[in-house]
Design a protein around this nucleic acid. Structure first.
Length: 1053
RNA sequence: GGGCAGGUAGCUCAGCUGGUUAGAGCACUCGGUUUACAUCCGAGAGGUCACAGGUUCGAGUCCUGUCCUGCCCACCA
């Protein structure tokens, strides 16, 4: 009998848990038919179809949080469902060492109280102690998993750093290396100059500071100028600077000497004995027979020479933008009396053309932009606009009069409220008396809103365009066109989106101004980057600028990531010391693979002590702070600083010591994913792996399509150490060209392959012998956890039996990080998909509706809720009404409601059990057709069978949360409120006062059987949702065919 | 800036490939019951399905645009 009173989960749930654990129901070796644990071999031979879920391993050092536990509810629901369906079920639990996070936590919470730090420990000591500590502490996480009812095989609970797992993971690395998918390359890393270590992004934190934003002018090298580079004795350079003149021998130019002409550039480079380099740009002033006279350049050389702009708009006339233009060294010609060619038989576009031609005649060297506009035409909505277009035969070519006529006619047919008005205008651009292009535009319905036409922003794919002048807005903008039809040799300057001016290239733009918060890194600049759609710089793409101070020609390249509106829209590229610059370099080099000359490189100018190194001349050896001051000072002396602003900026600082991170180049290990990602994309595209919810498939595929080579090495102690050995000490140094060079035992090596060939390095799991030193790097956590599905199953020799697994259930937030890697590495290592379905659950919002976070103080721990409500209530909260990928909020109402449901189930069961007590044992053997079932009984049976069928359908399509609402309601309303109430009179054998009453025995038995049948069915379909209470009630229920002493193994049908 | 999701009752959310009168839980109002139910049952009220167009015999559902919210990614040179 069930105990009296309301259901008490704190009392009942632990008993059930012990019942399950003691009987080892969770083990795959448990055979329900024999009701015992059979041998491993016997289990392997079992013919039942398999169903396997690998439980995502939580961090070993902490207790699983509300999110982890939600996962277990879903995983366990599936495990239990398929177990009851007769599958051979296996759940693989595990605990994660959690890489960097694990290391931080153990240092803080375990070692620091003992006065131990990485500085006063050996690596082995640290690893051993941490391992032991984790082994101990991970038991708590395991208990939490069991408490929620997760029916996985806890005898096979495994740690990610388990030696056998490590072995399998390292084998994968070695296989990747042998197959040529692993390489060691130089890459930018977060370097903490104080801790002297590379840091993962997660170990850095943003800090706001205010800093100087320096605008530096990089002189543009004229297109037709040759550039020669010459190495000279230092003394010669010195004399050049002093005397402003130098004669050098033509023969120094070698076979290029015939090319040189006056006004060419010669960049002179001289080295001091101690490695400092001095570079100075000079102009060829005079060529004698065997000598060249060189003149050093000063900044005045780059000044602009002549104006070339004419605008016809009122803004020019008013002298607006004057200062900006003059800042560029331009003079502006304004036209006092603009031509008025209007009306008559001329169309807008003809007007514009006529204007442009007239002006260009007057100013033969000017590029003329002429506009004409102001025609008002009605806007009629979509439908009417079509009519309008049709009636306006001739379109642009129609004259004003024709147009006005047609519009007036049309207006009559248009409903009044739709008669709004838009503007029409035209543009023409002329040069040397010739029209370059012309176009009319129609835009802005009605009273013009404050917005520009959306097409303007969208169509910035080309550089040629049309000016649009919005009279009512007093604004200019432009529209771009197909540029391959018209090729012009000029650029367009745009000020703050408002003014557009077309400028001749030659002699006008003679600087490219870049803005930077880190002027000292310009010493390592290798390019200037502009947005490919930025019309201002179109004519400059592919040209070169001369990097001041170090006087190195660097190219102007493009990348869409560059923000046109930030700073000057031109970005100085220092790939060695800015993460984003580094990415731009990679992209650029990838896109210009076929053209080796276009490739750009890095120059590392800051070393691990934050000192200036590399080819930096007089700045060599300065600290970054000193260098910054000096560089700005020197640039100002050259008049190459146009302005300095103060800017608020976020910098990354070291999480531990708060030192500003100094990004720089360092040698790291990579996986070349270009090949191995292909099958991982294919299996998802083909639907061999299905992702729930479906829309996450796109997220996965987008991520995979764009996946770049994966850096897998980390400078940590806690993790899988690389199976890489060096014969001697490994050092990294920056050479005089700013390149990172690795030295093994003093010998410089180009790359790892070379080191291996020279016998200085080896890939091996064990030490190759005395004197060999193992690499300091450990693997990125995702490299190991990406192998979790097959590594765990291989360890337990269950691979053949259970791989591929059926479901991977995890939070959608790690789809990209974890799921993608499991698919990729699983396919690579085993040739098979790791799982058939990916079910992604949503995140849980706290009681206040916000995302849980420690800083907000709204974190809810699952064990708190379990203590108060029990595991079943929490499981219902996770499941009921929720769907894949959707976030949901925890509320007390939901928890209370679930508690009430359990109580209802408990009481209804008590009622049923009490009323079937004396016929309990024979009920399962009775056949419905032999019973005197009433219409209500039959209806009840039908109803419960129906809901069971629906639940089955929904669970198998991963919609168990949605159907749970119906199931709960079904039990409550159909079984409790309806059937139980109407069946009562048929069950009573006594009246209110306890006196016996007459009753029909057969009818009563029919009712009793129906009660029994419905309840056992409900218990079964409810079991995957609320295993504890259903199992507890099951213990009191009579058992029939297909029933097991544990509800867990009783068959659904 | 790019991407994804969402906007439905007072609150938290369902509503699959378009199809009667748009649903559930909680909260609310009224009535009843206490031989399973520190309760439960019955009844009721409450919605321009964000907004504007469109497709259709028919739109919460499909298309276009707009607004708002949340999340993810990137970036702040």
């Amino acid at each position: 009998m069930l105990p009296k009173g309301p259901y008490n989960p704190q009392e009942e749930e632990p008993k059930i848990l012990i019942f399950w654990l003691d009987n080892k129901f969770y083990k795959p070796e448990y055979d329900p038919d024999k009701d015992k644990v059979v041998s491993f071999e016997e289990m392997l031979k079992d013919k039942r179809p398999t169903f396997c879920i690998i439980n995502p391993p939580p961090n070993a050092y902490g207790r699983p949080h509300l999110g982890n536990v939600s996962g277990y509810a879903y995983q366990d629901l599936l495990l239990r469902y398929y177990r009851m369906k007769g599958y051979k079920v296996y759940g693989q639990p595990g605990k994660d060492h959690a890489g960097i996070q694990g290391e931080i936590v153990v240092l803080r919470e375990y070692f620091r109280p003992q006065g131990k730090f990485k500085a006063n420990m050996t690596r082995d000591e640290f690893y051993r102690e941490t391992y032991e500590y984790f082994m101990k502490i991970k038991e708590q996480a395991k208990k939490d998993e069991q408490r929620i009812g997760l029916s996985s095989d806890f005898d096979r609970d495994v740690f990610t750093l388990d030696p056998e797992i490590v072995d399998i993971v390292l084998d994968t690395f070695i296989k990747l290396y042998r197959d040529g998918y692993v390489y060691k390359g130089v890459r930018i890393v977060n370097w903490c100059p104080s801790c002297q270590t590379a840091l993962a992004d997660i170990d850095t934190e943003p800090k706001e500071r205010s800093t100087d934003f320096v605008y530096i002018k990089y002189p543009l090298i004229p297109e037709d100028a040759n550039i020669f580079e010459l190495k000279l004795p230092y003394a010669d350079l010195d004399s050049l600077q002093k005397n402003k003149k130098l004669n050098i021998d033509l023969s120094l130019l070698g076979n290029q000497k015939n090319k040189i002409k006056i006004n060419d550039f010669v960049i002179l480079e001289a080295s001091e004995p101690e490695y400092h380099k001095m570079r100075l740009p000079s102009l060829v002033a005079n060529i004698k027979e065997d000598k060249v006279e060189l003149k050093p350049l000063d900044s005045s050389f780059w000044q602009a020479k002549y104006p070339l702009l004419i605008g016809t708009s009122s803004k020019f006339k008013q002298g607006l933008f004057k200062s900006q233009l003059e800042d560029l060294g331009l003079k502006i010609i304004t036209v006092d009396k603009p031509l008025e060619i209007r009306e008559g038989e001329t169309s807008l576009i003809e007007n514009a053309k006529a204007k442009a031609l007239a002006y260009s005649k007057a100013y033969p060297n000017a590029l003329v932009i002429a506009n004409d506009g102001g025609a008002e035409i009605p806007y009629l909505g979509k439908k009417w606009n079509k009519v309008l277009t049709k009636r306006l035969v001739g379109g642009d070519k129609a004259s004003y009069k024709e147009r006005a006529q047609a519009l007036l006619e049309l207006m009559k047919d248009v409903p009044k409220d739709k008669r709004t008005v838009y503007w029409e205008g035209a543009y023409a651009v002329a040069l040397n008396g010739e029209i370059l292009f012309a176009k009319s535009y129609k835009e802005e319905p009605g009273i013009i809103t404050t917005k520009l036409h959306p097409g303007i922003e969208k169509s910035t794919g080309d550089w040629l365009g049309y000016i649009w002048y919005y009279p009512q807005l007093e604004k200019y903008s432009f529209e771009l066109t197909d540029s391959d039809k018209v090729k012009l040799n000029w650029a367009i300057i745009q000020f703050k989106k408002d003014l557009l001016a077309f400028l001749f290239e030659k002699g006008i733009i003679n600087y490219v101004t870049v803005a930077t918060t880190r002027p000292e890194t310009m010493l390592g600049d290798t390019a200037v980057v502009v947005n490919p759609d930025d019309i201002r710089y179109q004519a400059l793409i592919g040209r070169k600028v001369l990097l001041p101070l170090v006087w190195r020609p660097i190219p102007i390249i493009t990348d869409p990531i560059v923000d046109k509106n930030l700073g000057t829209g031109a970005l100085k590229l220092t790939p060695a010391h800015a993460y984003e610059d580094y990415q731009i370099m990679l992209n650029w080099n990838k896109n210009t693979k076929k053209d080796p000359d276009a490739q750009i490189d890095y120059i590392n100018v800051i070393d691990k002590q934050a000192k200036i190194v590399g080819p930096t001349g007089k700045y060599f050896g300065l600290s970054t702070t000193e260098a910054k001051e000096q560089v700005v000072k020197d640039l100002q002396a050259l008049k190459l600083v146009s302005k300095i602003e103060t800017k608020k900026q976020f910098v990354q600082v070291c999480e531990r010591c708060k030192t500003v991170i100094e990004p720089q180049m360092s040698s790291q290990w990579f996986i070349d994913v270009s090949q191995i990602k292909k099958p991982a994309i294919e299996v998802v595209e083909k639907g061999e792996i299905k992702i729930h919810p479906k829309n996450m498939t796109k997220v996965y595929l987008d991520w995979m399509y764009n996946l770049r080579d994966w850096p897998i090495s980390r400078s940590l102690w806690w993790g899988y150490r690389f199976p890489v050995w060096y014969k001697g000490k490994v050092e990294e140094k920056i050479d005089e060209n700013g390149k990172v060079i690795t030295y093994i035992d003093g010998t410089p090596v180009k790359d790892f392959k070379e080191a291996e060939e020279k016998g200085l390095a080896k890939i091996s799991k064990k030490s190759p012998g005395k004197g060999w030193i193992q690499s300091d790097y450990v693997f990125d956590t995702w490299f190991s956890s990406g192998q979790w599905p097959f590594a765990t199953l291989m360890k337990f020799k269950l691979f053949d039996k259970f791989y591929p697994t059926q479901v991977m259930e995890t939070g959608y937030d790690i789809l990209k990080w974890w799921v993608s890697r499991m698919v990729m590495l699983g396919l690579y290592r085993t040739g098979k998909i790791p799982f058939e379905h990916v079910y992604l659950h949503g995140l849980i919002k706290s009681f206040d509706g916000q995302k849980m976070s420690k800083s907000k103080g709204n974190v809810v721990y699952p064990h708190e809720l379990i203590e108060k409500y029990g595991a079943d209530v929490l499981r219902l909260f996770y499941i009921v009404g929720n769907k894949a990928g959707a976030n949901y909020q925890i509320t007390h109402d939901k928890l209370e409601g679930n508690k009430r449901f359990l109580n209802k189930l408990w009481n209804a069961s008590k009622f049923v059990l009490f009323n079937i007590e004396e016929v309990k044992d024979k009920l399962p053997q009775l056949k419905p057709q032999e019973l005197k079932l009433s219409a209500d009984d039959k209806k009840m049976v039908k109803e419960v069978d129906k809901i069971a069928e629906r639940v089955k359908k929904y669970i198998e399509s991963f919609k168990f949360g949605i159907i749970a609402v119906d199931l709960r309601q079904h039990f409550w309303e159909i079984f409790c409120d309806w059937y139980l109430e109407i069946v009562k009179p048929r069950l009573y054998t006594k009246d209110k006062n306890g006196n016996p009453i007459e009753y029909d025995k057969d009818d009563r038995l029919a009712a009793q059987w129906t009660l029994y049948y419905a309840l056992q069915k409900y218990l079964k379909i409810l079991h995957p949702y609320i295993p504890f209470i259903t199992e507890r009630i099951w213990q009191e229920m009579p058992k029939g065919k297909g029933d097991h002493r544990s509800l867990m193994f009783s068959r659904w049908e």
